[in-house]
Design a protein around this nucleic acid. Sequence first.
DNA 1: TAGCTTGTTGGCGGACCGTCAACAGCAAGT
DNA 2: ACTTGCTGTTGACGGTCCGCCAACAAGCTA
Lengths: 223, 223
Amino acid sequence: MSPAASPRWKRLEPDERREQILECATRLFGERPYAEVSTTDIAREAGVARGLLNHYFGQKRDLYLKVVKRMLLMPGLEESVTMTGTLRERVERSVEWYLDTVATHGKTYVAVTGMGGIGSDPELERIISEADDVAAAKTLEFLGLKVEVGNDARHRAMMRSYGGLVKASIREWIRGGTLSREDTQLLLSEALIVIVRDVFPQLAQQDGPARGDARAPKTGPKR
Amino acid sequence: MSPAASPRWKRLEPDERREQILECATRLFGERPYAEVSTTDIAREAGVARGLLNHYFGQKRDLYLKVVKRMLLMPGLEESVTMTGTLRERVERSVEWYLDTVATHGKTYVAVTGMGGIGSDPELERIISEADDVAAAKTLEFLGLKVEVGNDARHRAMMRSYGGLVKASIREWIRGGTLSREDTQLLLSEALIVIVRDVFPQLAQQDGPARGDARAPKTGPKR
DNA sequence: TAGCTTGTTGGCGGACCGTCAACAGCAAGT
DNA sequence: ACTTGCTGTTGACGGTCCGCCAACAAGCTA
């Protein structure tokens, strides 16, 4: 008889196995809520023993965090869009690019960023918040706005808040279709313009005619 | 000897007991994430057997939903604020009222509305979305804006999206203090004004001078 | 082919949750 | 004051899920 008819399981490089498990986990976490995806499900989907998940990722929660991290790392904004024209034009193009990117990830993006997976987990919030910071910094940089360091924390916080609007409207768009893509883009562009004007009031005059009702006081922290 | 020295437990009316459990659950869910609050914890906190929670609320998830519901029902906006003055003034007052209300609920509100509790649960999302609708409708009504029924779904979706901005910025404010209350109020007011102008473009001229760069097309679904 | 490295398995122990039959507080009836 | 009955409440049982770890085996090397 053949010396080793067929091995009962195949031995993979750690990186390969890790990647394979990550993909299965990503798919399942996109289909069902966090609590309803058991490690047994993921293991079965990947065709491995359940204990292997703990071996590679530690806790189930850690595996989920890895999934979120990989999902939120969005590649190259700056290479794919030109940054010319008025502030409004640039804003609209960057929002458009962002919606394109999200559209490719689809439901998994919504499930991960949205009402969440895990319940208010500090680590998860840190990761998402960090990803929001990156996205915000990219956007601001793309808009050609330099961050003066004194207000950095405040500006980042404002952009993270804007991220809340982004996610909520995208959820409306992707999930139920209660907003069309045009609606979403309009909403996000207008809001971003307003925020930029508040955070960087000195740039207001760059965008064509100034607003009629410019609030003279309290456009920034008193200095 | 005394006939019944002291009963080992006290018998309460169902409504009383329910309320007592709800309060303990509310406190605990405000302190820790959903998954880290066991029904045993809640039962111990309330000085009650664990099975009683299931008797009154069914699943642990149902108890959590009850907590969220009670948390999101915010009483009387319309009675407490006058609705006179320009659109900007009314917006700023309503935002201010909302921030006051949230401030009283504190961390629990943030934990409940925020990154959530349960993982993307349809029922939970329905509840939160419904509460957002109520808050949005109250706000719009308070602003003196009548909803024309044709665009109702779209308008509600936009206001729910705005709710995402509200929650995110409030989280920045309450949690880490990365935004001051003034920052939060400024951000939310400006954004709300913009949204109202987009959703109800015909009301733009009510608020002083019109914007210089008013977008003539695509201010609504084509009809 | 024998030996060694290490990727992988499978079961153990513990935590948590939903259910349900039995128990007991307590108010009404005698 | 004692008994009866209603029902609020308890405590344990069965099941699921997860983290851990010793044993196992795939596959390279000599």
